[in-house]
Design a protein around this nucleic acid. Structure first.
Length: 363
DNA sequence: CCCTCGATCAC
DNA sequence: CCTCATATCGAGGG
């Protein structure tokens, strides 16, 4: 278990690339894949954009309206997200990728880790050759491009796959780790987002080289034991996480944007009910019972509030589910000042059904 | 040790 | 102008 060779594979601008594959005519244009909310009009956000669009500042997460404004002078297409199609494309690609791995870890529709230590006999040249073959095979069979990072661990490979995109291949050998990381922005470390970055900016810390100078005790004080230690190790490229198949999902959630902002119980109740129905169906499809139920408000100002409750016993009875969800809603509304923009429901603390779903069948 | 809740990340 | 879904951590209270 001493040394490893790990790949991180990332499909380039995945949803937008899928759309280009389906309709190559749009490849020369700006392509933005949109998630429209239930408000109508252009309310919603960008899921992904191709590189033509990114040149104009259009990226995932920004409002559709803003993206349209940025691209108003351009030849651009705005397409509604078609997740079934992307999932199908993803499955086909993952099927190919698995074959190249000793151990395969699915991370999401557009991401995976591979441990290839055995397959490459721990040889970097073999690894680079294998990665190139893999890129070729998925390009030839699906017309899909991806970027791959190769290194001794998951952390470095993830950073490396992001280093050169699209269609990149980046290797970080053990002796190159320090040099590779030094010049990078701390934001490149997965898990360091906007908030964490802001804290370091305040301290005039921008690069990983600068980050390395901070004491682990100080980091622990600032971010807590787990995160502090994680950041400390990451700055040195240290990561012991093994590549392994993903454990089963431990929660399901659904959230909707309300037709209008509101804090009226009856209106919110109807929306919650709909979400309960969909989630309960999902639980049953997956043979899961849940023990915890939660609701979430996203307020007008985008701040959020959650309420949750644990049941004595796991179950998946829709009537019980709704009763608890409505109660949580009522409780949450008591102190509620602001209008609610979006409302969500969550179930967790799963246990498997195992045929004990219907106790009457025992008699 | 268990529960609830907010914060953060990242998509 | 602001989607959707999941996971994780830590504080605070029992």
């Amino acid at each position: 278990m001493e040394k490893r060779i790990v790949f991180h594979i990332d499909f380039d601008y995945f949803y937008a690339q899928c759309e280009e594959i389906r309709n190559p005519k749009i490849k020369s244009k700006c392509v933005a894949v949109c998630i429209f909310s239930d408000r109508g009009g252009d309310s919603g956000a960008i899921a992904t954009a191709n590189y033509n669009a990114r040149k104009f500042g259009v990226k995932s997460g920004i409002p559709i309206m803003l993206a349209k404004n940025k691209l108003k002078e351009q030849d651009a297409v705005f397409l509604p997200a078609d997740f079934d199609y992307y999932s199908d494309m993803s499955s086909k690609a993952m099927e190919i990728i698995e074959k190249y791995a000793d151990v395969f870890e699915y991370v999401g529709r557009d991401e995976a880790y591979l441990d290839v230590t055995q397959k490459t006999e721990m040889n970097i040249h073999n690894a680079e050759h294998l990665a190139q073959q893999l890129k070729n095979e998925i390009r030839n069979s699906l017309k899909l491009t991806c970027s791959i990072g190769i290194s001794p661990n998951k952390l470095l490979s993830k950073i490396a796959s992001d280093f050169k995109k699209p269609d990149g291949l980046t290797t970080v050998k053990p002796e190159q780790v320090e040099e590779f990381l030094s010049s990078l922005k701390i934001r490149e470390i997965p898990g360091i987002g906007k908030k964490t970055e802001d804290v370091f900016t305040q301290m005039n810390i921008h690069t990983i080289e600068e980050l390395r100078k901070i004491d682990v005790f100080d980091l622990n004080k600032m971010f807590g034991r787990k995160t502090g230690t994680y950041i400390f190790n990451s700055a040195k490229g240290i990561d012991g996480e093994t590549v392994r198949p993903r454990p089963p999902t431990i929660q399901f959630s659904k959230i909707v944007t309300l037709k209008k902002n509101s804090k009226e119980f009856e209106f919110l109740r109807e929306n919650v009910e709909e979400l309960c129905v969909r989630l309960n169906k999902l639980a049953i499809e997956n043979s899961k019972m849940y023990r915890s139920i939660g609701i979430q408000f996203v307020n007008e100002d985008l701040s959020s509030k959650t309420k949750s409750r644990m049941m004595k016993n796991p179950g998946n009875n829709l009537v019980e589910f709704k009763k608890i969800a409505f109660q949580l809603l009522e409780d949450a509304l008591v102190e509620q000042e602001m209008l609610v923009r979006r409302i969500g429901v969550r179930i967790s603390e799963f246990s498997d059904m195992e045929g004990q779903s219907d106790i009457t069948s025992y008699f």
